[in-house]
Design a protein around this nucleic acid. Structure first.
Lengths: 120, 120
DNA sequence: TAACATAGTACCCAAATCGAAACTGACGGA
DNA sequence: TCCGTCAGTTTCGATTTGGGTACTATGTTA
C-alpha cells in the first residue's frame, strides 16, 4: 500500500499538470499508439503500415506520422527512388515508450479474454 | 532482444485485433485515463473529480463516467440524500489498469522533463 | 501506348466529439 | 420567499476528426 501511495504522491500530483495528461498530449488520439506499436516490430514502409492498420486511410496515416515525427518519436527516411520509398522507424526516444505500449498490449489481451468469457 | 521479440510475436499479432487497439477501445479518448488516474487516490465525489480536472465540463465528465461504469472499470454509488451525493471508485477490474497508468504517468514525467531541458 | 507502383497532396463533405450555458429537483438555511 | 448545494440533463453550436475521390511524379513492365 505504501509503495503505491508513494507513486500516488509523486505521480498523481497535477500541480504542473497531470503526467498522464502529458503522455496523452503526445500519444493520445485514435491512432498514434497503434502506429508506434507496429514500429516496435521494426522499420516499416508507408503502405506496409497502412495495410497492417486496416481501418486507417492515407490522409490520417500521413497526419499521424507527421506529428509523431515532429515530436521526435519516429524517424522518417526518404529514399530518392521511383516509385518512392519512405521508411518509418522508432527513434531512441520513441523506444522509451515501448514499456508503456507493452503494458497496454498485455492489458488489452486480458481485457479481450475477459470479454469473451464474461459477457457483462 | 529475444525477450522483446517474444513479446512482439505474442502481443503484436493483430489477427484477432491489435491488443493495443483493444485497450484504446475501452480507455481511449481524451479523459478516461485521466479520470481513472484520479480514482487511484481513492473514492471521489462528482464535483471533486470535476474540480481536479480543470478543463472538463459536467457533461463530458458525466458521459465518460457512465461509459467507464458500463465497462465495469468504476463503481458508482448513489446516496439517497439531499443535496445528492454520488461517489465513484475503481472496481477490482479497474484496479488491474493501474500498472498501465503508472507506466503512462512515469513516461509523462520524463517526457515533460525532456521538453523543458530540450526544446526541440 | 497504356497500366502499375509508391507516397503522398488537395479538396470537400460527413460524423463524431467537445463545450458553454441554461435548466432541473429537492431540501436546508436566511 | 429566495439562495445555495449537488449531480446531473438538455440544447445548441463549434471544433476536431474521419474519409472519399481525384490528382501528382516518374521509372518499369506489358
Amino acid at each position: 500500500m505504501s509503495g503505491l501511495d508513494e507513486y500516488a504522491s509523486e505521480l498523481e500530483e497535477c500541480v504542473s499538470g497531470c503526467p498522464v495528461e502529458a503522455t496523452l498530449s503526445v500519444v493520445g488520439g485514435k491512432w498514434k499508439a497503434i502506429i508506434l506499436w507496429r514500429l516496435v516490430g521494426g522499420t516499416k514502409r508507408f503502405n506496409e503500415l497502412q495495410r497492417s492498420i486496416s481501418q486507417i486511410n492515407r490522409k490520417m496515416l500521413t497526419e499521424q506520422l507527421r506529428e509523431l515525427e515532429r515530436d521526435n518519436l519516429i524517424i522518417r527516411t526518404v529514399y530518392q527512388q521511383v516509385p518512392p520509398k519512405v521508411e518509418y522507424s522508432l527513434s531512441d526516444y520513441g523506444r522509451t515508450f515501448i514499456p508503456v505500449m507493452q503494458a497496454m498490449a498485455e492489458w488489452g489481451l486480458v481485457h479481450r479474454e475477459r470479454n469473451v468469457t464474461n459477457k457483462s
